[in-house]
Simulated assay, not measured.
Amino acid sequence: MDSHAMGASPHLDSGTLEVIVPDGEAAVRWASHGYPSALARWHYHPQIEIHLIREGSGQLMAGDGLMPFEAGHVALIGSNLPHNWLSDVIPGERLRHRDVLCHVRPQTIRMLMAAFPETYGFEQVMRRSAHALVLSGDAAREAGDLLVAMGDHDPARRVADLVAILSVFEHAPAGESRTVVAPEYNPAVAAGAEQGINAAISYISDHLDDVNLPDAAAAASMSVSTFSRFFKRVAGIGFADFVRRLRIGRACRLLTCTDMPVSKIQRMSGYDNASNFNRRFRAETGMTPSAYRRLHAAR
């Protein structure tokens, strides 16, 4: 997930709001980090965030939306919108250079628009960011390159980089720009939910081969029925569907990054029955595990 900028110190207030310490000398805050990381958690903050995933694949959680990501994914997350990037990783694996991001307050962008009418199109970008705006294709590559380069630039140059990145979002073709969160989503539904969601995610990630609903509910300090309703309301997806996506994501990672037998990958992904594993895998990917491995081995 995201991080504080270089030289800043984030504080997590009971797992709810990430406070990014203001820097009087810079309005644009840049950072990078790996995964897993204590900073990679479901949370929100007042700043808008532009975020690049440089390696790995997984699921973006934003508001009530869930979408798969791969390396090169670029997203613009609006102010106070809860978010998290969950990577498909082999147990014990670390992605050392997964995340590159910057933070800027929405008020700063609006002051920029007031001073420079040429940037009036950024208002639409800001509105769409409230629903997690994600780029793909050439637009993602261009924005991602700008975001990486920002890390080597001085504060004044970073302002120019920010304008350039927002311009990419503004002019991205319709086929390379989409939102993740439902139009009717209200961020207030997530207020105070971070501790429970993060406890559940931590449990699921640590026990993906043997997840069960009662233990997930216990991790979140809730009854099973309360937790089920809570998870669906806040995460926008049912608990069982969420677990299935993460399990198939792990299977995909193991199939492409190891030479383990499919039967062992099946068990490590939480499936005791081969036919059930094959059925779930095909439903998510459109092919069998063996076909998926052959396809990616040929690339």
Score class of each variant (00 low, 15 high):
Ser290Glu: 02
Arg245Glu: 08
Ala283Asn: 07
Arg158Lys: 09
Ala38Gln: 13
Asp161Tyr: 06
Asn198Val: 10
Thr179Gly: 03
Leu39His: 13
Ala130Trp: 00
Phe230Tyr: 15
Arg245Tyr: 12
Ala164Arg: 06
Leu52Lys: 08
Met287Ser: 09
Ser263Arg: 13
Ile48Ser: 07
Leu52Tyr: 05
Ile265Val: 15
Ala114Leu: 06
Ser167Tyr: 01
His73Asp: 06
Pro155Tyr: 06
Gly72Pro: 05
Ala115His: 01
Glu93His: 11
Leu60His: 08
Val104Glu: 03
Tyr35Gly: 04
Ser37Phe: 10
Ala114Pro: 00
Leu295Gly: 02
Ala240Trp: 11
Cys102Thr: 08
Arg245Gln: 12
Asn198Cys: 11
Met222Phe: 14
Ala199Cys: 14
Ala218Gly: 12
His97Ala: 14
Arg110Ala: 11
Asn278Cys: 13
Met113Ile: 15
His207Ile: 09
Ala200Gly: 10
Ser129Tyr: 03
Ala5Glu: 00
Arg94Asp: 06
Ser57Pro: 00
Val100Asn: 02
Ala143Arg: 01
Arg299Val: 05
Arg294Ala: 15
Asp64Val: 08
Asn84Cys: 12
Arg178Phe: 06
Arg105Lys: 08
Tyr271Cys: 02
Met268Arg: 12
Leu162His: 03
Met126Lys: 03
Phe227Thr: 12
Ser87Gln: 08
His73Tyr: 14
His51Met: 13
Ala40Cys: 12
Val243Ile: 13
Glu170Lys: 06
Glu123His: 12
Gln124Cys: 07
Val104Cys: 12
Leu76Lys: 05
Ala75Asp: 01
Ala140Asn: 03
Gly270Pro: 03
Asp2His: 11
Ile109Thr: 04
Gly15Leu: 09
Ile77Ala: 04
Ala75Asn: 02
Phe281Arg: 04
Gly137Gln: 01
Ala143Gln: 02
Ala216Val: 14
Thr258Glu: 13
Ala297Ile: 00
Met1Ser: 14
Thr226Asn: 13
Ala114Ser: 10
Leu213Pro: 04
Ala62Leu: 09
Tyr292His: 11
Thr288Ser: 14
Tyr271Trp: 08
Val74Ala: 10
Asn212Phe: 14
Leu17Ala: 13
Tyr185Met: 03
Val125Pro: 02
Glu123Pro: 04
Ser129Glu: 00
Leu81Thr: 06
Ala172Gln: 00
Tyr35Ile: 11
Met287Leu: 07
Gly34Asn: 08
Ala38Phe: 14
Asp2Trp: 07
Ser202Pro: 00
Leu12Asn: 07
Tyr185Pro: 01
Phe277Ser: 07
Leu255Cys: 15
Gly175Phe: 00
Val163Ile: 10
Ser37Met: 09
Ala199Gly: 09
His153Met: 09
Pro91Gln: 09
Ser223Asn: 08
His33Cys: 12
Phe277Thr: 02
His33Asn: 14
